[in-house]
Structure formats: structure tokens, C-alpha cells
Design a protein around this nucleic acid. Structure first.
Lengths: 256, 256
DNA sequence: ATATTATTGCGTTATTATGACACAATGTAA
DNA sequence: TTACATTGTGTCATAATAACGCAATAATAT
């Protein structure tokens, strides 16, 4: 079938266009229904889960490779991306390969560049959940969002990569109001707070949180309130892009 | 001569033992005479300066490669090391190669793996200046310390790597009392303060600085004072390793 | 010997930021 | 119409921070 032909070709001839020994893995964060989510692929045959990843064209910048890979997985064009760590444990990529997979690829492909050692550069992406359309790649037969705390068994060292990405995100939170990238353009204060609580894994005082974030000046309150809630309706806010950028430039801190 | 034979061999056969397309560059920070220093090598023939760097053995962890490289350049065994960024601009390594260099290597070597594209992983190291014995490598004929603010012209994108390392160090300062790695085992309060001022590039109030760092509990004051200063002698301090590690584990912050 | 000088150790105070909590307002559901 | 959950705004005690004062001290100049 067409799919396997593509796969086979990748194993046999991929090294002609990609750099050897080097890959990218992306941790794509989204926020939906008050929970932090991550985009995962279900690896063919193995049934384990994998981070969206890919390879680097011979004359391509890593940032561009990550953009290209994520464009394919999410349909999104302008994704907020940040390189966070490079994973190089020699044991990370030499784990036993799934047998069902090998059989489907064929004997010749077993000597493929794909079974050599890989060093992988980790990128973390922050996206607006509502804008993403997950698409599987040639190594997988499913692509979907998962709650950060109910993660399935993952291939290779991907669980470790995810863990590192989360730590990195937690630190990033102090230097950048990540809500801008993770939330839809308009959102309520409780939603923003829940985002922070989820990432930091601790409760914050509602009133102090509001005061602090308002004081930064990066939010604009809209005249509109949320409809259809069985209690006092919260206002919608959006980021004041002008002040947001100014704050970033000035190296703002946002401690909680 | 022996040196050029070694170099020639590296160009012709290095790819047999090292991963292609991948290198490491190290920014080694030291502190001496109240100034932040960085270790540089003078590239042969080009005369420009370079960060200590090297390549990764086919089954070697990047961290181990960095350790190996720095052991050779500094003589030090247990260096505090941290990976900070991976540099992948396709243009970074394709800059015109120095002619004098090429002539000395010979014609055959011009097709060497060394002239292919390189992606370089940046490591920053914090060392005790007084313990380092700089040694040049096969690509250079000089190795020495330079004040961070009077840096010479550098090869490739090394100036950029250095800049990124400094930014990274500045952020690190909030999470880790870097003095432990940069200062000799015993030091005075003004020395520690100067270290912070140099990295942050701003003046700090002497009295507030002292109070804050004492309050962290990671220092032990010795009974000894500095000798031979034409004014009131400052006490020596050293890090209380027990509390230092405890603070690190607890994720201490040190804002100034 | 003594005074001078630069710098240290320790302390004070005003200002600002933080954490913890009170209470009225409000939009749906009972 | 009332109950309910949750929001917007505000207060207050406490902690952290910035700015500054002053006596002590070790070499040096007189």
C-alpha cells in the first residue's frame, strides 16, 4: 500500500536528504477545558506514544525544521517555538526496535540510517488548542491531545523529553506571560489563572493573582462578559500586544 | 612536523571516529582580579580567536564529550558544565576558510568532513580560575584568558555563542549561587559581590547584598580576615556545602 | 606615635510587595 | 423569589526591598 512504500523509501533513502544522527522532537503544549495538554502520535505497530518529531534537511536551520514538522502535524503556520534541550544519551535511540515494525519495512531497510544513533534537539511549542488540526505522520496512525498528567507509555526517551519540557516551561513562566500563546485571543481571568495553576502545579489566590497580572499592564479588559455561567459572569480579557511586547523587551518578571 | 601530521590525520580520518555534522563549543567562565574572564584559543593562521571546542565520539554522550574537551584544554577533571543552546544556522560553518590554513593542510584534505556543515552544541563551564592550566589544541597555537568585555575578533559564529552563554549565565544567577563554581574555596564578601556585579552589569548596594546572601544561609564566615589591605580587612567566607545543596534542591531563588 | 584614608560590619527607616482574608455584586438554577 | 457558586474590589498585617548612617579597623602618610 502507498503508506508503506513511503515509509520504505524513508528508511532506504532518507539519508540522501536529511542530516544523519540528528533529529528533532517537539513538545506541543495546548490548553483546553482547564487542563494542560500535549500533542502525541501513536507509533505504528508498537502502540506506544511518541512526540511529533522529524529530521533536518541538509541545509536547514533547526528552527525551520521544527516549524516544518509542526506545520505538518498541526496545520499551523506561525507557531511559538523554543529550543529547550539537546538529548544525546547514546542509549536513547538504540532501544530494541519493535518487531512488527521491522517485518513490515522489509529486510533491506534493517541496515537503514534510521537505526543508527540519534541525537535529538527538543523544541517546545505553545499553541492555541482551538486552532490545531492534528495529523498523523508516516510512522504513526493516530495523532491527538493528551492531558499532561495521564500520559501513556512512550517510545524511546520521550517521557524524559516531555518531563524536561515541562520543567523548562515552568521556568519560562517567570519571564514570559505564556498565556498569550496558549489561550485563545479572548479569555477570562479564571481561565488564565487555571493555566498558571496547571503549569506550576499549585493553587494560587484568586484575588492576588488578579491584582498582580493586572498590575503588569499587559491585559486589556473587554466590555464583554462570559455568557451562560450559573453565577456572576467574569469579564473577557485580551493581551495588550503593545504593552506585552514592551514588557518582554524590558525583561519583565512575573513571580507568583 | 608532528603537529601538522596530526592535523592532517584529523581532516582525513576524523569522520571514522566522530559523528558527522556535529560539534561542541564551550564557553569557559572564570573570575580573576574582579573581572569575568573567558578561555579562548588563537586559531592557527587565521589569527582570530575561538572557543574551545571539539567533536563527539560515535558512542559518546555530549556531556562526556564536553568534559573530555575541557579536560584537555584546562587540565581540570570535575568541571561544572551546563548545556545552554544548540546552534544550527546553516551559514554558521560555511564561512570562507582561511587560505593559509588550507595550504598547510594539503589538497586532499579540502574534501574533508571538516568542511561540511556543522551544528554545534553550546556548553558553558564555570571554573576556578586559579586551578586552570590553559593548553592549546591542534587547531590553535595559543590558549589564554580574556576579559569578557575586551574580546578579540572571533571565528565563525563564536561571538554569538559567547553572547548567548552570557545571557544564559545571567538567568542562571537567579537559580544558583554561581560563586561556588567560579571563586576559590575561600573568598571575601566584596569579591563575591563584584562577581555578581560583573555578570549582571550593574552596581549593587554593598549592605543589602551582604544581608541577602547571608540570609540564604549558604555561606560560612571564617575567623580569618584578608591580610595586606589598606583599610578594614574583610572576613573570608566559604560556601556551606550542606546548606548550598539543600538550597539548590529546594529550588532557591536569589534575586537582586 | 598619631592622624588620615578607604573600606568594612552592622544597623535604621521609609517604601513597596505579598499573603491572607472580607464582603457585596451578579447570572443562572431551584 | 431565593439559593448558590463565583466574581470584582478592597483591607490589613507582615515581609521584602531600597536607600542610607555610622562606628570600627588596617595600612599608610605625617
Amino acid at each position: 500500500m502507498k503508506f508503506d512504500k513511503q515509509l520504505r523509501n524513508h528508511f532506504l533513502r532518507g539519508h540522501e536528504i536529511y542530516l544523519r544522527h540528528l533529529s528533532i522532537d517537539c513538545v506541543v503544549f495546548g490548553f483546553h477545558e482547564n487542563a494542560l495538554k500535549v500533542l502525541l502520535l501513536k507509533a505504528k505497530y508498537a502502540g506506544k506514544w511518541a512526540l511529533p518529531g522529524g529530521f533536518i534537511l541538509k541545509e536547514e536551520h533547526l528552527d525551520d525544521a521544527a516549524k516544518r514538522i509542526l506545520k505538518e502535524r498541526t496545520g499551523l503556520d506561525k507557531i511559538y517555538l523554543r529550543q529547550f534541550y539537546t538529548f544525546s544519551d547514546p542509549a536513547r535511540s538504540t532501544k530494541k526496535i519493535n518487531q512488527g515494525f521491522l517485518q513490515n519495512i522489509g529486510a533491506k531497510a534493517r541496515k537503514s540510517w534510521m537505526f543508527e544513533r540519534f541525537i535529538s534537539v527538543g523544541y517546545s511549542a505553545l499553541v492555541d488548542f482551538t486552532k490545531v488540526h492534528p495529523v498523523a505522520d508516516i510512522f504513526s496512525d493516530e495523532c491527538d491531545w493528551f492531558n499532561i498528567h495521564v500520559i501513556r507509555e512512550m517510545i524511546l526517551d520521550h517521557a524524559n523529553i516531555l518531563k524536561k519540557a515541562l520543567e523548562s516551561l515552568r521556568i519560562q513562566l517567570n519571564f514570559q506571560p505564556v498565556g498569550y500563546n496558549l489561550l485563545p485571543s479572548k479569555f477570562t481571568m479564571p481561565e488564565l489563572q487555571k493555566l498558571y495553576e496547571t503549569i506550576l502545579e499549585r493553587k494560587l489566590d484568586r484575588r492576588n493573582f488578579q491584582r498582580k497580572i493586572i498590575d503588569t499592564g499587559i491585559l486589556k479588559r473587554l466590555d464583554e462578559t462570559k455568557k451562560g455561567v450559573a453565577h456572576k459572569a467574569p469579564f473577557y480579557y485580551k493581551f495588550d500586544l503593545r504593552n506585552y511586547k514592551k514588557a518582554l523587551k524590558a525583561g519583565m518578571r512575573f513571580e507568583l
